[in-house]
Design a protein around this nucleic acid. Structure first.
Lengths: 146, 146
DNA sequence: TATTGTTATACTCTATAACTATA
DNA sequence: TATAGTTATAGAGTATAACAATA
């Protein structure tokens, strides 16, 4: 049995494991901010605009009820604000507060610090290739959140 | 705000998303075999030996009760067999059946087919760099299952 | 007493569907 | 009727702790 005949040597398996690992490490680092990883996705989207809740759900690739729950938590934390629209009172714009902007900035910094730690053992060329490849793959496969 | 100042541009975020995506696609492909991704990790370890259940848990990086549950399912499927050891009757060796070996082989083939589909848009040099980098990262960070 | 494995329980994350209010 | 959002519920996956059998 050659090394390539093992399940665990597949890219699919390894990217799954590394993805879980990276998410777990990120969770540890943002926990002191009162955030979990999924909250950071929300804050990221809200930095770019003030979508309605359903728009947020499709941008993040999660269900509506998950968005409601995350916004409840972020609102309690004081990071976001729901604003009822006057033209159509069913809709609510979601916007960042000043605290939310600060948290988004901090979470972004933590993510990039984690990147440095995760990729510390690779040389610059490898790192550059990896980043390019991941942008291409995210686009290729239509992954949400990016 | 530059592209590098966004949370979603971080490697940590992107590898998390791609890992989830790869795992979901793999789940779809092994479902017809009656397997879920975590079962394939078990089968992979069992190809290399016949560990006791606790050894299996640490090899996979999951809790003991999860191993019990997975083995129940794999045993019902006829893929593995628990063999009580005579020297120490608390322990049970876990071994693959003939069906289990066949399933392990099929799952491995599906994983590598998925690799080809996932990485189809990358050129050979990028793919090689990616594979090398992932082996290095898995080792560096002590990820289980490899 | 310590260890192997099992069971009970609980927690997180997620989706679906029933519901409320507005349109 | 249809849509935005909410709530209720259920399922997958995980871990911890209490437990049984054996050492």
């Amino acid at each position: 049995m050659s090394a390539e005949d093992t399940f665990t040597s597949s890219f699919a398996f390894q990217v799954g494991k590394l993805g879980q690992f990276a998410t777990d490490r990120f969770a540890e680092r943002v926990a002191p901010l009162g955030l979990r990883p999924r909250h950071c996705g929300v804050l990221g989207v809200l930095r770019a605009g003030q979508p309605a809740q359903l728009d947020l759900a499709s941008a993040l690739g999660v269900s509506n009820s998950v968005v409601v729950n995350m916004l409840d938590e972020l609102e309690e934390l004081g990071a976001v604000r729901r604003v009822r629209e006057t033209e159509d009172r069913r809709r609510q714009r979601v916007e960042l507060t000043a605290l939310g902007r600060t948290l988004a900035r901090k979470a972004t910094r933590l993510a990039h610090e984690l990147d440095r730690d995760l990729l510390a053992s690779l040389d610059d060329a490898q790192t550059a290739t990896l980043r390019d490849a991941f942008r291409a793959l995210a686009k290729e496969h239509g992954l949400p959140g990016g």
